[in-house]
Amino acid sequence: MTVLLQLLFQGVGIGAVYALVALGFVLIYRATNVVNFAQGQFAVVGAYGMVVTTADLGLPYWVGILITLAVMALFGALFNLSVYYPLRNRSFLPVVISTIGASIFITNIILGVYGPEPSMLAPMLDAPGISLGNLFLDAQYLTIIAVTLALVALQYLFFEHTLLGKRMQAVSQDKEMASLLGIKVGWMIMLTFIYSAMLGGIAGILVAPILFVSVGLGGQIALKAFAATIIGGFGDVPGAIVGGIAIGVIETFGAYYISVPYKDAFAFIVLFAFLLLRPQGLFGEKVSQKA
């Protein structure tokens, strides 16, 4: 029983990180119809933001978080202006290539400055965690789960109950219609990039104390997050969350009960199953080609 609960806790914890990155994928996809392959690098930039502010400059942890989030917002805006905006009227493919290029660029800039050696980031809380008998709940994983839940709730309130949120939703549903209704589409897309970059940054900040900080951090998470978005139904917000947590739990249980070396395969076996049997994902609706 303890083993079961321990695996479940760990699976949900790492799944929450996948969910946060998946959420960034989904929001940008909804706003622009493009998959942002640099989403994982947003997490890396966030994690290095914390290393620079707290480890290098010695600022308090919360100040580091605030500065990093501000930097992420700016980064999201710059990313939009340099990677998406110039190509906004082109087809899907050039934009995708552009995000892949941006991802390689970001990785190498960080590699150039920091090198391949991993850096360390202290956990958010001083306490190591809670022991319940043989069960150990890592404080950082508890933080991750709590922050993810809070963000999901906030995001729900924002999109469903504020005018700005509704405008952003309108843009994601139909850009031309939204534009005819006087919504500034370009600004809404800008806001989406800013918010997605901050989400990715938060994922990086949260996961850095556990996985250490290196350029490889983004790739590890982004691939799983991408699988999560497909399982959840591409473009579906609750789907991304459920998909992320499902992948975390499935791979953790699969690793323990079936095989550790094939741990990464489980996420993709589930992904293949979905692509074959239910390509629209858990929550997606079957969309026929727009006329």
Binding site: V3, Q6, L7, Q10, I14, I210, L211, G216, G219, Q220, I221, T252, A255, Y256, V260, P261, K263, D264
Partner: peptide, 20 residues
Amino acid sequence: EQGYANQATDFTPVVLAIKG
């Protein structure tokens, strides 16, 4: 005998197997 793929995110299954 516990193998793992490089760049692992979590070793809980390996640790639990050793513990058990």
